[in-house]
Simulated assay, not measured.
Amino acid sequence: MLNLRLFILISAFGISRAKIFFRPDHTFDKNCTLPNGEQGICRSFMDCGTAVAEASERPKTCYFEGNDHFVCCRVPRPSDLACTEYKLPRPEVINGLPTEPREFPYMVALGWNTSETSVYDYKCGGALIGPDWVLTAAHCTSSGGEEPAVVLAGGVNLTSKRFPPTPIEKIIIHPNYEHKIVYDDIALIKLTGAPHEGEPACIGDRLPLIGRNATAVGYGHTVFGGLPSEQLLKAYLLTIETPQCQFHYNDEEAIPNGLRDTHLCAKDLQFKRDTCQGDSGGPLIIKNDGLYKPESYVIGVTSFGNGCATDAPGVYTNVAKYLDWIEPIIWPHYIPKKVA
């Protein structure tokens, strides 16, 4: 289990511990230049959030107002603002015993209706990236011509009866996705409400993705052709360069134009852990280490592979490449107002 600590800033300038918040107006004046040459905004150091945490060098000072230190920050994306808003600690209780929060509280299972009332067939995974929004694979939005009906959130056992599954309100598939072709294999699911037991993960585009230790999470088969697991499982993987991956998928009909930068590959180089059938749509996670506590970032959505735990890496949809599609759907209120 991961220990959910306070969302604090450990300042190199001797600033005391405090929560980081973006100001509510979300109007940004681009009035400074970042060390990399991009335009930035002068904001209080305490309001800079991930813009400071991801800086490659000491933040550039704009000015001081009394004791407030204003530095040059990158303009936060809607996903940055949402991530900051989500991360308020809360206690969790499992089976009546007080515990630390679940290790993967953003993990969900997609359930299909069965012939029995209130009994669901869980066939795919996904990740909460908003209080009532799930990120999954486009190919997980239909099984036998039927759409999933509910999600079970919180990374709980699939037989758990503690909280009922949350009904699905609507499904939005990426407009460029084509059935049987594994490009743009990504979709969003709007729920009828926020699951009681779930907590969103973050997404973003400023994270290094190659050569990173990552964790794949799912309820899929533990062996190729086997039975799905009722317990949530995880696999520790390493993200690798796409050319290393392409070698294993040269003759696949599902990728007629080869792998793209919208794909992300990962494999276990030592123990041959991998995602498998039933893990589809589930998240590939990394921890972003900054000046405050590490946050879970969904960098990939389990898409396809060549068998399970073979020499071929698993292929994931690269979430960072789809932020321009995701953000206006989930966080239109965070889109910065243009300043004349």
Rank of each mutant, 00 (worst) to 15 (best):
V93Q: 14
I94P: 01
P98D: 14
P98M: 07
E100K: 04
E100F: 05
P101Y: 04
F104D: 05
F104L: 05
A109M: 00
A109T: 00
L110A: 03
T114H: 04
S115M: 07
E116G: 00
E116T: 09
T117G: 00
V119H: 04
V119C: 01
V119R: 12
Y120L: 02
D121W: 04
D121L: 08
G125H: 03
L128W: 03
I129F: 03
P131E: 13
W133F: 13
A137I: 06
A138P: 03
A138Y: 05
A138C: 06
H139E: 14
H139L: 11
C140S: 11
C140T: 04
S142Q: 15
G145S: 06
E146H: 12
E146L: 11
E147N: 14
P148V: 02
P148I: 00
A149F: 09
V150T: 03
V150P: 03
G155Q: 11
G155L: 11
V156H: 13
K161M: 11
R162V: 10
E169F: 04
K170H: 12
I171S: 07
I171C: 11
I173N: 07
H174Q: 07
Y177R: 02
E178W: 03
H179F: 14
Y183W: 06
D185E: 10
I186E: 11
I186Q: 06
L188W: 02
I189G: 02
L191G: 05
T192D: 02
T192L: 05
P195C: 11
P195Q: 08
P195V: 05
H196E: 14
H196Y: 11
E197I: 03
E197F: 00
C202V: 01
D205L: 01
R206K: 15
L207G: 00
L207D: 04
P208D: 13
L209H: 07
L209D: 03
G211K: 10
G211C: 09
R212S: 13
T215V: 15
V217E: 01
G218E: 09
Y219Q: 01
